[in-house]
């Protein structure tokens, strides 16, 4: 059983669809691992999760070890319709997770324990919300980021125009 069997390509736009239960199962494992990291402050475990996030963020959510566990052990036991989703929303969540895990790794090495706790805490909250409540991180965060970025570039443009010599 390979993931390509559940991949479908939308003919209207070139969007890659995967089994939506895969990323949610991955979120359960991610939440457990992040909880263990938060409790133990274990660097090897954190580097493992950082690597998983990196694969999810830069290759795709269907390429992580957690997705492999889902395909191999969980999916064959599931029945019913396969709910599909675009790969981009879970990939966005993996990018956010990667950034938090990277911050936490640097903080752990520099022994900044508060930064470590906050970074892992946010990542754990997001993974737990995804697993338990089907929380869509991209839905809630992406537009706010785009709005903030737009506001910054608008202000920059205004500042640039202030600096223009008046004719």
């Amino acid at each position: 059983m390979t993931i390509t069997q559940v991949l479908k390509f939308d003919t209207k736009c070139d969007v890659k669809l995967i089994d939506a239960r895969g990323p949610r199962f991955g979120a359960i494992l991610t939440a457990i691992v992040l909880a263990a990291i938060l409790a133990s402050a274990s660097l090897p475990l954190l580097i493992w999760q950082l690597s998983v996030f990196a694969i999810g963020a830069f290759v795709g959510p269907q390429a992580t070890p957690y997705a492999w566990i889902y395909r191999t052990f969980v999916k064959p036991r599931l029945r019913g319709d396969v709910p599909t989703e675009d790969t981009r929303p879970p990939q966005f969540a993996q990018v956010v997770g990667f950034l938090f895990a990277l911050t936490a790794t640097v903080a752990l090495i520099l022994e900044a324990s508060l930064v470590f706790d906050v970074a892992i805490g946010f990542a754990l909250a997001a993974a737990f919300l995804n697993a338990a409540f089907n929380f869509c991180l991209g839905c809630e965060m992406y537009l706010l980021i785009a709005r903030a970025q737009g506001a910054v570039s608008q202000r920059k443009n205004r500042e640039d125009s202030y600096n223009l010599p008046s004719l």
């Binding site: 909880a35 938060l38 409540f133």
Partner: peptide
């Protein structure tokens, strides 16, 4: 010594938000 307090805090806050989110 493992510290479970941060997990408890995070999961409590996230659950409160999650129920609001779902509703």
């Amino acid at each position: 010594m493992d510290n479970y307090l941060p997990i408890l805090i995070v999961l409590t806050l996230a659950s409160a938000y999650g129920f609001w989110y779902q509703r």
